[in-house]
Design a protein around this nucleic acid. Structure first.
Lengths: 354, 354
DNA sequence: TCCGAAAAATTTATGCTTAAAATCGCCGTC
DNA sequence: GACGGCGATTTTAAGCATAAATTTTTCGGA
C-alpha cells in the first residue's frame, strides 16, 4: 500500500478503472468501443473513473487482441536523393493521412535491399505494421518485386515502367497532365515559343512530364516549341536551372537574327529549375512574367522567390497520401492504380502585366 | 484441417514453433532472448523450426509483456518552417538512431497545442511510445512546458532561452563554435574584412550563430568586421542571400573610396544564404574563393553549387540524433543538456587558389 | 408468477516473458 | 553399486491489457 502510493503512479489499466467504477472490466471495454449498449448511468460512472485515473486505452494490448497493427511503415528515401521540398510536404501529408485513418506512420531507413527486406519482414510479420509505403520508385527498383515475393502488403508512390499493368498498387499525380496545364496556361496568355527545361529520365515521372509537354505542344500546334534545342535535359536542381536558362536565352541576345527562335516561356520540370531560371532572368534585367514566362512544378516554398512568385503545378499530395494509406488498409492484396489530377497555381511569373 | 490449409496461412506463433520442435513455448522464448542458457542441440532444433515456419517474434505481444514501448515519437515540424534540407537529413539520422536502439520512429504531425497534446497523451499513456523528440523549438514554444506538465518524457533538439538551466533535456550542435570555426578558417587564409549574413532571432540557434561571429572577430581583433553594416539580418533563404550579398558588395564597386570597408569574406548563416551569395558573385563575374570567400552552414546538398563547392559547417546530426534517443530511453526523468561540436568541411568557396 | 429483452459479468483467448519449480544426467562417496 | 546432491536444462504457472463470445443477472410488463 505504502509502496504503491510512494512509487511513481503506475499507468492505470482497465482493471483499475473497473474497480473504481465498481463494474467489470468488460463493461469498461464496452464503454470505449460500443457505448450504445451500455446503460447511461453506468457509462457516466465509468467515464468519471477514467477521468479520475487519467486512463488511456493501452494501444499495444488493443492491437494484440485485435491482431491488427496500428502502424503503417514508410521507407524513408535515402538522403542523396535530390533534396526535394515536395517530398517533405508529402511526408507530412502521409503522416496526417495515417492519423486520419487512426494509424501511425513508422519510418524505416533505406539501405541495402537485403537489410531492408529483413527489417520489413520483422515489422510486418512481427505484427507491428499493416504494410508499407515506398516512394521514389526507380525503373529498376528491386523493392516492389522483393516485397511482393514475400507477401508483404505495400503501395508505391509512383509507377515503374509497367504502368497500369503492374501487379502491385501505385498512386501517382498525373505528371503529363500537370505539364500540359502549364503549357495551356502560358499559351492562353499568348506565348507561342516555349521551351521545356527537363531532367534526365531516371524516373517515369520525369519521362511523363516531358511527354506531357510534347503532347500539349502538338495539340496546340506549337511546332516551334518542339524544335531541337527547345527541349533540354539539364537536371532538376537550381544550378542547372540557372545554366539551362542562360543557354536558352543566350541565343536571343547574341544572335538577333535567330531571335524569333528564342523562347518566351520556360516550362520547367521542377521549382528548383524554375527558380534558377528566374535568377538568370533577373541577372539580365528581365522581368519574369512580363518578359519571359516561367513555370515550375510541385508548388514548393521556392515559388516565393522574393518579389516574384513562380507559377507552379501543385500535386494533390494529400489525396495521394490518403490513397496510399487506403490501399494498404483496404486492399492489401490486389493491385489498384490511381492517377490523380494536379492543379495549377498561377503567380506573377506568368503574368504579363507584372 | 482442410480449412486451415486452404485459408491463407496464419502467421506462426511461438506455440507453433514449440510444437514443431517438440519443446515447450518457454524454450523457444529462451532461444530468442537468452540463447546461451539453452543447449546447443535444442537451439538448433528450434532454429530449424522457426525457419520452416518463417516465424517472427510478435513485437506487439512482446512489447505488451515487457510493458516497454518499442516506438519513439517525433513531432514533425510544420511544413511552413523554412524548407531546410538539413532537417531532412536529421530525420533520417533520427530514424537510424532509433533502429540502432532497437526502436522505431513514429511520426505525429504538428498542429494546435491542445490537439497535439491529446495525441501525445494517447500515444504515451497508451504505451505506444517511450517518449518524444521535438525539434524547431522556438523561444516561446509551449510544447516543452506542456509535455513536462503532463509527465511525458521528451528531449528537445535545440534549447530555448533558458540555456543550461532548463528543467528538460535538450541536445544541440554548438552553433557559436561552428561559426567561429568558419571565421577562423577564412582568417587563417588571410581575410581581415568579413561580414556576417544572418537571419532574424526567432530561434536561439540563430542568436548563437551571430554571437559566435562576434566573439570570434573580437578574439581575432577583426574590428572592421564588427562595424555597422557588416552584420546583416536578411533571412535564411536563398533569395535573401542573393540580395544581402548584392548590398554588401554593391558598396565596393560603386564607392571606391570606401572600398577598404568592403568585405572579402561572407560568413553566412545557412547554405541557402551562401548559395544566394554565390549566385550574386557569379552574376558579377567574381569567383567565389579567389575573389570573395563564402561559407555556409549545415553542409546540405546545396553546397555542391555547380562547379563551386561551398565551404560549410557540418553539424554532428547523427550524434545529435543518437543523444536524443538515448536521453529518452535512459534518462526519461531528469534533465541533461548536451552540446556537440560541429566540423568544418572546406570547399572551393574559401580556396584562394580556386 | 414468469417471460424476454437489456445490461452486466464470466469465460476464454491473443502471444509473449519473468520467476519459480521440475527434470535430467553425472559424479564422488561410502 | 546405491544415494545424495549439484549444475545445467527445460517446463510449469502466472500474468500483461484488451476484446469476442457466452452466460448470468436484472427488471418491467403480461
Amino acid at each position: 500500500m505504502s509502496g504503491k502510493s510512494s512509487a511513481a503512479r503506475r499507468k492505470a489499466s482497465m482493471t483499475d478503472v473497473a474497480e473504481l467504477a465498481g463494474v467489470s472490466v468488460m463493461t469498461v471495454s464496452n464503454v470505449i468501443n460500443r457505448p450504445q449498449i451500455v446503460a447511461e448511468a453506468t457509462r457516466t460512472k465509468v467515464h468519471a473513473a477514467m477521468r479520475e485515473l487519467r486512463y488511456r486505452n493501452n494501444l499495444v494490448a488493443r492491437s494484440l487482441r485485435l491482431a491488427q497493427p496500428r502502424q503503417i511503415g514508410y521507407v524513408l528515401p535515402a538522403q542523396d536523393a535530390v533534396g526535394n521540398q515536395y517530398m517533405d510536404a508529402f511526408l507530412h501529408d502521409l503522416a496526417a493521412a495515417c492519423q486520419a485513418a487512426d494509424r501511425n506512420l513508422t519510418l524505416i531507413t533505406e539501405r541495402g535491399t537485403d537489410a531492408l527486406m529483413t527489417a520489413c519482414e520483422d515489422l510486418y510479420f512481427g505484427q507491428s505494421v499493416a504494410g508499407f509505403v515506398i516512394s521514389n520508385v526507380g525503373t529498376e527498383d528491386p523493392r516492389p518485386v522483393e516485397l511482393r515475393k514475400r507477401g508483404i502488403p505495400f503501395a508505391a508512390y509512383g509507377r515503374t515502367g509497367e504502368a497500369f499493368a503492374s501487379p502491385w498498387s501505385w498512386v501517382e499525380g498525373d505528371a503529363a497532365l500537370g505539364i500540359a496545364m502549364a503549357v495551356d496556361h502560358v499559351a492562353a496568355r499568348g506565348h507561342r515559343e516555349l521551351a521545356f527545361v527537363g531532367a534526365d529520365h531516371a524516373s517515369v515521372t520525369m519521362v511523363q512530364r516531358e511527354h506531357g509537354y510534347r503532347e500539349a505542344c502538338l495539340r496546340l500546334g506549337l511546332d516551334g516549341s518542339l524544335a531541337a534545342g527547345r527541349i533540354v535535359h539539364s537536371g532538376s536542381d537550381l544550378a542547372s536551372g540557372v545554366r539551362a536558362a542562360a543557354d536558352l536565352l543566350g541565343a536571343a541576345t547574341n544572335d538577333t537574327a535567330a531571335s524569333s527562335a528564342a523562347p518566351t516561356a520556360l516550362i520547367c520540370v521542377s521549382d528548383q529549375v524554375a527558380a534558377g531560371a528566374v535568377i538568370t532572368l533577373q541577372s539580365r534585367g528581365l522581368v519574369p512574367g512580363r518578359d519571359v514566362a516561367v513555370t515550375g512544378y510541385d508548388d514548393t516554398p521556392l515559388t516565393s522567390f522574393g518579389p516574384v512568385g513562380i507559377t507552379s503545378v501543385r500535386q494533390a499530395s494529400a489525396a495521394i497520401a490518403a490513397e496510399l494509406v487506403r490501399l494498404i488498409i483496404d486492399r492489401p492484396g490486389g493491385p489498384e492504380h490511381v492517377l490523380l489530377p494536379p492543379r495549377l497555381t498561377p503567380r506573377s511569373s506568368t503574368d504579363r502585366a507584372a
